[in-house]
Design a protein around this nucleic acid. Sequence first.
DNA 1: CGGTTTTGTTAGATGACGCTAACAATGACT
DNA 2: AGTCATTGTTAGCGTCATCTAACAAAACCG
Lengths: 239, 239
Amino acid sequence: MSPALEDYLETIYLLVQEHGFARVKDIARARDVKAATVSIALRKLAELELVRYERREYIALSPHGEEAGRRVFTRHRLLARFFEEVLGMPAAAASEQACAMEHSLTDDAMNRLVRFFEFVGSCPNVVDSFRECQTALGPGCSPEQRNTSGACALCSEKEEDPQMSLADLKPGQSAVVTHVGAAGALRQRLLDMGILPNTTINLERSGPGGEPLWIRCHGARLALRRTEATVIRVRDEMA
Amino acid sequence: MSPALEDYLETIYLLVQEHGFARVKDIARARDVKAATVSIALRKLAELELVRYERREYIALSPHGEEAGRRVFTRHRLLARFFEEVLGMPAAAASEQACAMEHSLTDDAMNRLVRFFEFVGSCPNVVDSFRECQTALGPGCSPEQRNTSGACALCSEKEEDPQMSLADLKPGQSAVVTHVGAAGALRQRLLDMGILPNTTINLERSGPGGEPLWIRCHGARLALRRTEATVIRVRDEMA
DNA sequence: CGGTTTTGTTAGATGACGCTAACAATGACT
DNA sequence: AGTCATTGTTAGCGTCATCTAACAAAACCG
């Protein structure tokens, strides 16, 4: 079963749920493909006995097909909920993200994600305080604000560790990223370069006048400007 | 850029990191395809100026190619960490799951996932107590055990709500799933049927002798045995 | 040097999945 | 009934990513 065929089953499943029937045209619209493509897919699905379908008649899922369609849709719902309710994405974007991932979520991963929801369901503070941190302080706020604002209601032992930035390291020193305190395009650039929380990075050396900072991150060498480095919060390597 | 080509860039990126060079043979082994396939992919990548490559010479990423490879690899690491560190999957499975998803993770979703890690990084109890719940009590334990065992160190207001199971509902009544207290194949079956935490389900009617319970979940009708229904914990619909 | 092994390339086939264009069936409206 | 609009099907094509098989180049070794 290819992802594409699974998608057709899911689409048909949803259309039948909603309207009681599914037609080629509706499926084509829902999946944004041409009717011709749907026609061919239906033939394949019928051969696999996932769909009962006589040319030009209404489309019905076989028991197996319905199972498969529901299975995919369930994964979709689960992932969309994660992106929306936990990570706070807008519903539409969460659903799109879920679409792209629903076919590859293994049983095991699904199970664990469900347990995660069961957990946060009986412990609502967890997600709430995360969400508060995000919305209350905005995406660009500095880590100091985050930590001292009391937004994280759960952490009794508010860490008073001296906060360091990547720019405070001496050449040769290593540290572990805790926050990437940048927003927008810069943030995305830093993340794409592999600067993620909990990543060990090493300041190899700084150029003349301290300007480009040469850092090593996961084996790769990168050059950063000092202004970029100051927003990257780090902690000591051990721990 | 197709996912497949991105995969080649990622693979080359990693091989260069690790060995200082990449050869067709190594790429083929890493991606588990034949050398012929790699050869063709390299030609395409060279046309896109992502790889500098003369026939039968060593393979090097162009600056753009390296950027793209690192970008994908970074997403891989991020997702793998989520599945491993947060959800507790074995490293190998987490990595595979990440492989399947790394190409479709949007910038926005990546960003938010990083913020999530930043958050749990300054609030380690969150994940820890989730993980404890899982490991301490085992996957099959009942929700009562979970709640009363004190494993959830974060929840001060331990809910003393009367716990209901799906089997306690009267025909026509609706409720919201909180825990799917089953393990193994039964659990998977229930999940695949769409019975997830926070899903509203409705007990339509029960068959003669109470035996099959007909329930409605997300518009779909399902039949459950009573023994299956008792493991599904629910709470009242409002809230 | 010359043969053998390793490595990489080319050619040609296949299977998904999409498209357009032309055609066929259905139904709806004078 | 005849015409037109809607809907679905078929045929034929292109692309992508893979394969196998045959070939070419390089590297290694006695």
